[in-house]
């Protein structure tokens, strides 16, 4: 299905440091990974391990990094141009904070259409809302009139409306209930299948990441410890001690008799 040599995003020796001198902290330390076109890649680790920092550097929200970020085998500049954002969009963790409280849903969606010079605004807004399962009736709502799951759907619609190739997902379901989480995960899976999107997902929930992604990297204190396929995680085949502990902490609360 995928052309395996087509690396849509690649980082080489990505390093992000904050502060200077004695108080400097290296949040991301020499991280290299790549995403093939159409695949879903997950970064997982505990808080403070640098996974969100990688995402922010990729999205261009933090231009101060060393190492290089390549897109389609070409290096992208530290300051991104509009064409980059047209291809790469981000969905944030907290749908309560990432939507403007005074903007109607249709204006939220309209804004990115205008920025990227699209035509047929009304038609595209309706299509984007339909795609995330909201329907045109939601156009005239404000964020406070929506539930958490509906807001996250609007955030996904906003990212999708300019037809990007890559979605950066920063813990898209951690602020949501289990039943709503299931809805959003299904939606993300369907959208990827229909549009051939590439996902880079950051989360600390192993069950969520194994559901959505095919390849997963475990991070610890700024480094990628190991990278593996979902099948190997499900089978519990990990090399590093830390990954084993992380897996045990994630699965430990599952009743064993139910698994068999």
């Amino acid at each position: 299905m995928n052309v395996t040599t087509d690396k849509i995003i690649e980082t080489v020796g990505l390093t992000v440091a904050f502060g200077s001198g004695a108080t400097s902290t290296t949040a991301v330390n020499d991280v290299s990974f790549f995403l093939d076109r159409g695949e879903a890649f997950g970064l997982i680790g505990e808080s403070g391990c640098g996974k969100s920092t990688i995402l922010r550097a990729l999205a261009g929200l933090n231009p101060d990094y060393s190492g290089s970020i390549l897109s389609g085998n070409k290096e992208v500049g530290h300051r991104r141009d509009k064409a980059f954002f047209r291809r790469v969009q981000m969905v944030f963790q907290d749908p309560y904070a990432s939507l403007h409280p005074r903007k109607m849903v249709q204006n939220v969606l309209l804004e990115s259409l205008i920025i990227h010079g699209f035509d047929n605004h009304q038609k595209r807004i309706s299509a984007a809302l339909d795609a995330v399962g909201l329907g045109s009736a939601f156009r005239y709502r404000y964020p406070h009139e929506l539930s958490g799951g509906q807001r996250q759907r609007v955030a996904i619609a906003r990212a999708l409306i300019i037809e990007p190739e890559i979605l950066l997902l920063d813990e898209p379901t951690s602020a949501l209930d289990v039943s709503v989480q299931a809805e959003i995960l299904n939606l993300l899976k369907t959208l990827r299948r229909e549009r051939g999107l590439t996902y880079l997902m950051v989360t600390h929930d192993l069950a969520v990441v194994t559901h959505l992604c095919e390849r997963i990297a475990i991070m610890h204190s700024g480094r990628i410890l190991e990278e593996m396929t979902v099948e190997r995680i499900r089978a519990g085949e990990v090399k590093e001690e830390y990954s084993r502990n992380f897996l045990a902490a994630s699965i430990g609360y599952k009743p064993m008799e139910y698994a068999s």
Binding site: V178, S179, Q181, A182, E183, L185, N186, K189, T190, L206, A207, V208, T210, H211, V230, I233, R234, S250, I251, K254, P255, Y258, A259
Partner: peptide, 27 residues
């Protein structure tokens, strides 16, 4: 995990599981 009420069962079904991959989660 042997709950009888349809609501409890539905909640359990909606959770992604590491040991039992599914294509689509039950809503």
């Amino acid at each position: 995990h042997n709950a009888k009420h349809p609501y409890t069962q539905a909640l359990l079904e909606s959770l992604p599981r590491i040991d039992r991959p599914v294509d689509m989660l039950q809503i």
